[in-house]
């Protein structure tokens, strides 16, 4: 159990972390989510006593970090992949850490085996790829067999196989009753691993909720309609008491209705439909809406205002789901149709 109480960090006049109060509970994966620059890494560094808080405290099982006897046996952390001496072999890098906390050297071989680096144990770590560096960092976190594990952006720079491996590792560690605290700026990744969610923006707590509640509250579902007789369709919908919102490409979006209802309605009024599909807003969108006011670094396009957040779901977000990963409910990207709703099949001509 990690408790943060009124944790604040100022760099000059800039507030990086602003009165953060929350708890990280054992036996589950807690996702720590926020856009870049939200203060996630600063918070994690303060948890490890690397940065001094301006005010507030962090307690780990009721103690300050520096009061822990041999801290690697309580809490293991992966902060960034390149935090080892490149001129030292993977084995020796871990050996110095193990010795400082009186961990037997046999444990070094064990964790190297766990992360799959046994084959390169004697190689200098400066030759390691980002993914191998990340695995070495995870090995150092596991070294003391700690009850609490912290990972700062563990999937950064990893290939699909590596991401899948880390995700399963975190779940397995949580299932053993350990406290897992993992930061990310990718909602889609968190949706697959985290049981609990702490969201921050500009250092302030925005949400502290279970993943299930977050999905339930934030995944808006709606029905999308496209018709060559759009005006008539709108009239019909209006008469029947549905609120239709016009969206891109001449489609209509209706909240709080089922495809069955709307299909039958169109048939009754003999309106031709080219599309009838149920849609779900992604959690990524919900996350971006939540943090929209607190994004530190906006990309600007053209003169004036900030660009609206791009639609996520394309890019690498799709690829990593393939090797065995199962998509959690609610992560469907906008634009993809859920199975069962088919384009235009309910068209009924006159």
């Amino acid at each position: 159990m990690i408790e943060l109480e009124g944790l604040t960090k100022r760099f000059g006049s800039k507030v990086a972390v602003d009165h953060l109060t929350c708890q990280v509970r054992p036996g589950m994966v807690t996702g720590f989510l926020g856009p870049n620059g939200a203060g996630k890494s600063t918070t994690m560094r303060m948890m490890l006593d690397l940065d001094n808080p301006t005010s507030g405290t962090v307690r780990i099982d009721g103690k300050h970090y520096h009061e822990l006897q041999e801290p690697l046996k309580y809490i293991g952390a992966l902060l960034d992949a390149k935090s080892m001496h490149g001129g030292r072999s993977a084995y020796n890098n871990l050996l110095c850490l193990a010795q400082s906390n009186r961990i037997p050297s046999s444990r070094v071989d064990e964790v190297l085996d766990t992360v799959g680096l046994s084959g390169v144990a004697k190689k200098k770590s400066k030759g390691f790829s980002l993914g191998m560096g990340q695995r070495l960092g995870i090995a150092s976190a596991l070294l003391g067999d700690p009850e609490i594990l912290m990972f700062d952006e563990p999937v950064n720079g990893l290939d699909p196989e590596g991401i899948h491996w880390i995700r399963n590792l975190m779940k397995a560690l949580a299932a053993e009753g350990r406290t897992i605290f993992v930061s990310s700026h990718l909602m889609s990744e968190m949706a697959l691993t985290a049981d609990h969610l702490i969201v921050i923006g500009q250092g302030r707590l925005l949400a502290d909720t279970s993943m299930a509640d977050f999905i339930h509250e934030n995944s808006r579902s709606y029905v999308r309609l496209r018709s060559p007789q759009q005006e008539r369709l709108r009239d019909v919908l209006h008469q029947e008491g549905f609120t239709a919102v016009e969206a891109d490409g001449g489609t209509l979006e209706i909240d709080g209705a089922t495809t069955e209802e709307l299909g039958e309605l169109a048939a009754r009024h003999q309106v031709v439909l080219h599309e009838l599909s149920s849609q779900r807003a992604s959690l990524e969108e919900a996350f971006m809406q939540m943090t929209a006011g607190s994004v530190e670094y906006h990309a600007h396009s053209g003169p004036g205002g900030a660009e609206p957040p791009p639609t996520v779901g394309a890019g690498w977000g799709e690829g990593w789901q393939q090797p065995g990963g199962t998509a959690a409910p609610g992560t469907t990207a906008p634009g993809t149709t859920t199975p069962g709703s088919v384009d235009g099949t309910e068209n009924k001509g006159a």
Binding site: D49, M84, G86, L97
Partner: peptide, 16 residues
């Protein structure tokens, strides 16, 4: 080299 390699953070996490 503790500073240039970033090892200092790992070292201080092990020995606060």
């Amino acid at each position: 080299t503790e500073y240039s390699s970033g090892m200092i953070r790992t070292s201080l996490a092990a020995v606060p």
